[in-house]
Amino acid sequence: MEITTEKDSKYNSLEKMPLLEILQNINNEDKTVPLAVEKALEQIEDLATIVTEKMRIGGRLFYIGAGTSGRLGVVDASECPPTFGVPFDLVVGIIAGGDNAIRRAVEFAEDDREQAWEDLMEFDINEKDVVVGIAASGTTPYVIGGLQKANDHNIATGCIVCNAKSPVAAEAQYPVEVIVGPEFVTGSTRMKAGTAQKLVLNMLSTSVMIQLGRVKGNKMVDMQLSNNKLVDRGARMVMSETGLSHAAAAALLKQHGSVRKAVEATKK
């Protein structure tokens, strides 16, 4: 396979560039990422469809990855409960090297083909679940091994990669391939590749949650009320739906604990 994410940058002598030129060139490269994602929309649709189907029968979504890719999976998983009010273990992000690797790289953790499955087994993974491997290169042994084992146990598998015809995509039943090309800094896949993966993760989890009824209209009616900003946002949602004053809406929200329940209480 051709690993385009490792190809030389089309820019050179970066250290000699004026600051504004550096920023302009990074921005120009970043502009190409949404177009690359657009080409993978049908693949993303297939992956979102199977995740939704599995969640409707009690399944969960697991992300596995290493380095930047693993961290992005952890971020997306951790944001689902506060955004959509789902249980903390419905979407799970697992990073090679464990939670310590979120802040500090764990040497050679990504090279262990067996560890991902061991990590998944700690969650009693089963045939209702979906495992999505995230790997910019598409060659990460940790991810390849995890997907292989999941396939062996009849568990649905997907991936998000940034190179064509990769070993990771070959193992995934529902591959998403977003080909972003060489990075501005050669091989620095936290840049365009990381941005592409983040966009796909946003689309995947958000579209699944919408299909599961976790959004009403265009509002996060099940969001957790974990700070004053969110309480105020929730109160304004209740006001919009019910016509109540802000004070009355806030009191109703406090009583019932969610926008959905507060609005439903006014209809009884």
Rank of each mutant, 00 (worst) to 15 (best):
V130P: 03
N12W: 11
N12F: 11
A250E: 06
L61G: 06
R236W: 02
I22K: 12
R113K: 10
D222F: 15
L20R: 04
G243Q: 02
G243A: 01
N228E: 15
A250L: 06
V200N: 07
S137T: 02
V208C: 00
K149W: 07
L147H: 08
A105V: 15
E127M: 11
A250Q: 07
T206E: 00
T32C: 10
Y142C: 09
V130T: 13
V75P: 00
T83N: 09
V131N: 11
I134C: 07
V51E: 07
T83V: 09
N218G: 15
A150G: 09
S78L: 14
E6Q: 14
Q173R: 13
L230W: 04
E53T: 06
A135S: 14
G243Y: 01
Q24K: 10
G217W: 13
L35I: 14
A172T: 15
G97K: 10
P34H: 12
V131G: 14
D112F: 08
P34Q: 13
E6V: 00
M209H: 03
T186S: 08
A248P: 03
K229E: 06
D99Q: 13
C162I: 08
T266M: 14
D152Y: 08
E241I: 02
A66R: 06
L41M: 14
K198D: 01
N12Q: 15
K229G: 07
H153Y: 13
G138T: 05
E183P: 06
L14I: 14
L41K: 04
A105L: 14
I44K: 01
L47M: 09
C159W: 01
D222S: 12
L204S: 06
L19V: 14
Q173W: 05
V86R: 03
E45P: 00
V132K: 08
G97T: 11
G98P: 11
S188K: 13
L90G: 02
G98V: 13
A136R: 05
L20E: 04
S69M: 08
A169P: 13
S13Q: 15
F88G: 05
M191R: 03
C80P: 04
Q211R: 15
A235Q: 03
T5D: 10
D89P: 04
G70Y: 09
L72N: 12
S245Y: 02
D119S: 13
C159K: 01
G243W: 01
Y63A: 05
K31P: 00
D111C: 09
Q255P: 00
E171T: 07
N27E: 07
I57W: 00
P141M: 06
Q43C: 05
V221G: 04
I134D: 04
T83C: 09
V37L: 10
L252H: 02
F84Y: 15
K16D: 14
G58P: 05
S245E: 03
N28T: 05
A36R: 15
V33D: 11
N151S: 13
F88I: 11
K54M: 12
I64H: 01
Q43A: 11
G93C: 09
P34Y: 12
L35Q: 15
T32Y: 02
G194C: 08
V238P: 01
L41H: 02
E6C: 05
A247Q: 05
A249D: 02
C80Y: 06
V75C: 07
L47D: 05
A248I: 02
T140L: 01
P82H: 08
L244W: 00
R236K: 09
E127I: 08
Q148V: 04
G257P: 02
T195H: 04
A262D: 06
I64Y: 07
